[in-house]
Simulated assay, not measured.
Amino acid sequence: MRPARALIDLQALRHNYRLARELAGGNTLAVIKADAYGHGAVRCAQALEPEADGFAVACIEEALQLREAGIQAPILLLEGFFEADELPLIERHRLWCVVHALWQVEAIERSPLRSPLRVWLKLDSGMHRVGLAPAEYPVAHQRLLSSGKVDEIVLMSHFARADEPDCASSLDQLAVFQAACAGLVGAVSLRNSPALLAWPDIPSDWTRAGIMLYGATPFEQVQPAAERLRPVMTLESKIISVRQLAAGEPVGYGARFLTPGPTRVGVVALGYADGYPRHAPNGTPLSVDGHPARLIGRVSMDMLMVDLSDLPQAGLGSRVELWGKQVLASEVATRAATIPYQLFCNLRRVPLLYRDGPTDAE
């Protein structure tokens, strides 16, 4: 079989959730939308369910996948519902639901629900993606309470720049949120991963841990709390070809790399069709049999090249880590001008192999 694979460390996942809950000091949702950021939503939920306060997904399809797998913990739909006819399913499967628009309020008012919903009412406090305007917010809150269709409302918003610890934008958004919520009763949910790690003074009865669950930092600079995270995914493959090239020889498509001197080149069975960033530049870090190495040449669909000139012991079958515990996904993302979120979510074609202790299970 092709040697490319992604190893998922469930013990590290639990460690990161416990860190999130420690920093939160209270209830914490594990965000496992987008197939747990490429890590496998069902297996991640099963690993976390004994201690998680609940989960968060993007949409009802993701929630139903978890329910069908036997997950009974609370599940929040972060985008709410897209059509009113989803409401009976939300009721039947006991899902919590974000409401971010007046049409959703109206749909709940009209729906013949038999059991009240748990609603997370979202305010647009300045990110301007989704959420009710500040003037609409208390009106929507009152309408939901008066409808008789809602038993509890969590007051929530989302920060646009919490991953910039020196930027005052999050405090500005907090001020907007507090003004809009004046006089309203309900638990508060404001802190996401970067806010959990870097903004301890922002109040939040419920926190939402996303990228930090998977052991990647959301910050461009070193951040003390983020240093305690453990990488969950290790993307690896093997060297399938080795050749010795003279100085001045091109490597890969477009001759983007020319050998500066005699160069030993290894070919790795992994490429952009597996999710590795095509635009990762020459010098992007990786490791070969545990030793630091560098990418050379343009990444192709199924293969990429590594400089083995300083690694005489490496050869056919040598293990290559593209990101993981030795090569942090954040380092690869920075070199490729992207973010670790995208690296994880773009993963495809490679099998996920789960580790939970001394034995491995697929």
Rank of each mutant, 00 (worst) to 15 (best):
R2E: 14
A4T: 00
I8A: 10
D9Q: 08
N16F: 10
A20G: 14
L23C: 07
G26I: 05
L29N: 07
Y37S: 10
G38M: 05
H39F: 12
E51P: 14
A52K: 05
D53Y: 00
D53G: 12
F55R: 07
I60Y: 10
L64N: 05
L66D: 02
R67Y: 12
A73M: 11
P74I: 12
L78S: 08
D85I: 01
E86Q: 15
P88C: 03
L89N: 03
L89F: 06
E91V: 06
R94C: 10
L102G: 00
E106H: 12
E106C: 09
A107W: 02
A107N: 11
L117A: 12
W120E: 08
K122M: 15
M127F: 11
V139K: 11
V139A: 13
A140W: 08
L145E: 13
S147E: 11
G148W: 14
V150T: 09
M156V: 12
S157L: 05
R161V: 00
C167V: 09
S169Y: 13
S170W: 02
V176I: 14
S189H: 09
L190H: 02
L190R: 01
R191D: 01
L196V: 08
L196Q: 05
L197I: 12
D201G: 05
P203L: 08
R208D: 08
R208M: 14
A209F: 09
G215R: 00
T217Y: 14
F219D: 08
V222P: 11
V222F: 12
Q223L: 14
P224V: 01
R230V: 00
T234C: 11
I239T: 07
S241A: 15
Q244G: 05
Q244Y: 13
V251Q: 07
A255W: 00
T259D: 09
T259G: 00
V267Y: 07
R278Y: 09
A280L: 08
N282S: 04
G283I: 14
G283K: 09
S287D: 10
G290K: 14
I296F: 02
I296R: 09
S300N: 04
M301Y: 04
L304Q: 06
M305L: 04
V306E: 02
V306H: 04
V306F: 04
S309D: 08
D310V: 07
A314Q: 02
A314R: 00
G315C: 07
G315I: 01
G315H: 04
L316S: 03
L316Y: 08
V320P: 04
V320D: 01
E321G: 03
L322Y: 03
T334Y: 01
R335W: 13
P340D: 03
N346H: 10
R348L: 07
L352P: 03
Y354C: 00
D356N: 10
T359R: 15
T359Y: 13
D360L: 15
